[in-house]
Design a protein around this nucleic acid. Sequence first.
DNA 1: ATTATTTGACCGAT
DNA 2: ATCGGTCAAATAAT
Length: 222
Amino acid sequence: MSSLSHEDLLTKRKSVIGDYGGGADKRSQIAVGDHGGSACSGENKKSPRVKDRRGSYKRRKTSDSWTIVSPMKEDGCAWRKYGQKIILSAKYPRSYFRCTHKKQGCKATKQVQRIKEDPILYQTTYFGCHTCRYKLRAPLTNVIDTDPPESNLLCFEEMIPQVDAPFEFKEDRVQSDKKSSADSSLWHDMKSLEPFMVWPPKMRCFDMEGVDEFGDLDITFH
DNA sequence: ATTATTTGACCGAT
DNA sequence: ATCGGTCAAATAAT
């Protein structure tokens, strides 16, 4: 789709940024600049860099999660990447995604990690159910107020096959080539299927725990 | 303009 | 101290 390779993009970006990440943290710089000499209004507890983030996030529980092992890392949902980490015991980095509609209260997240090279396999772990899907049906109306935000579990009737999502394969920066054709053709095969991501939570609702296989996909509920 | 991605720092747990 | 998960500024894309 894009005319530039990922290496190109990366190179371009690096050349623009320079030693961006290498040296001092930009927020440190900002912080020093901000209240650098100011000593502030006296009481600082522990030199907040740019903003005190203590308690800014809570670690998730491992409940309400399930894992899918599949050759695809795309599902039918709109995710926004918010992090990537090198995992010590893993060969490939792990990517962290949250639902694009987090602002509307959707708490669903997932993490994707490639676990195998030859036939490429991704392990995707989902946390929480989407609460945003049925809102998409009436995007221009004022449904937000009327939606019960605590209804985590949806019915099948509420589900919409969200095949309008941007299906696009983007490879991790750390290995750029040898993707596309295999992946894409695979995806085109799978594209006729229901986006499988939407039903694992239903299976949970229907008391299907203990099921850990479904066709070609390995699914593990936690 | 707004939204998405990148990426090092920060946080809590161990 | 280290690890994995998250934040958020800078950057890129739309």
